[in-house]
Design a protein around this nucleic acid. Structure first.
Lengths: 155, 155
DNA sequence: AGCAACCAAATTGTGCACAATATAATTGTG
DNA sequence: CACAATTATATTGTGCACAATTTGGTTGCT
């Protein structure tokens, strides 16, 4: 832990103005690569559940709070209807969710878990643990990553 | 800086088993969102260059080292030919790159910058600075992020 | 030389991701 | 009550991203 901190401080202190232009390139690209890496680590476990990563995110959201509108899902996952509508239709074909248009306001579509979708939660329970093992990362590192992203993203 | 470090240590110490189980979701989802956020911050600047973010990555790679094979680009950017071939064809139509099949080994395609592609480097020089301003993030935070991702990704 | 491995790109197919637009329903205002 | 503004979802079009397969070329082995 201490070594990491010393490393941060040294890196920051040693940075010259010249490097400033270069730095943002070297930061944004690794984030983009890491996101793809993470999804590829999920893949073997999610394959067993017949879910893609974005579909898994929808299931996580619904397991936490069943019956949500497309809009609510989109806000929580930062996805628009152009992405969610076809994705949810594929999940409906697999019978993990049902899409029911509201009778009160017919513009609204409610997305709910089917029994099969609810049951899948048990099978998915081991995914986080398996993932952590597969990524082979320490809790400390993950926590640092989580905190720094939270700080940067909250803008 | 010191506050952040104290915060990490406290967070790690205070974590409960229940939180540990969901740590992967608390990290992986934010990474996925941050990657999308960064690309959306690039968009207004890259629109002015008539480049998408993955196309910009190809240009960065070629500006650093002109004339590379599809394979070399794919390794540096972690993209396969199914992604790169159509992407490079679109960049060829825009006349930023040329694709020339090797005469020595006709399986190999060399990708080079056109004059227009080389000239674009001047116009792109201000992108990193503009992006930093648009994201409104400190160099210290970016450095921490970069270091922790480098540590996690190198596996 | 002949032929099996191997290799580099391209192709095909599925699934996001998002901008722009369309459609239809609801709400607010005079 | 009419009607403009707003809202929620769907649709369309473009561009990745990656797995699986194909095509054609090269290399190594006997």
């Amino acid at each position: 832990m201490h070594n990491i901190i010393v490393c941060y401080i040294c890196t920051v202190k040693l940075m010259q103005m010249k490097d400033l232009l270069h730095l943002s390139e070297q930061v944004c690209f690794p984030v983009y690569v890491l996101a793809k890496e993470i999804i590829s680590h999920y893949k073997p476990f999610l394959d067993g559940l017949d879910l893609t990563y974005p579909q898994y995110l929808v299931m996580l959201t619904l397991w936490e709070n069943d019956k949500q509108t497309v809009n609510e899902l989109g806000e929580k996952l930062t996805l628009d209807s152009g992405t969610l509508t076809p994705l949810l239709k594929r999940m409906e074909v697999k019978e993990f969710v049902s899409r029911i248009r509201s009778s009160k306001d017919e513009r609204v579509v409610h997305v709910s878990l089917t029994d099969k979708g609810k049951l899948l939660k048990e099978k998915a329970a081991c995914v986080p643990g398996q993932l952590m093992e597969s990524m082979n990362v320490s809790i400390e590192d993950l926590t640092i990553l989580k905190n720094i992203i939270t700080k940067i993203s909250k803008k």
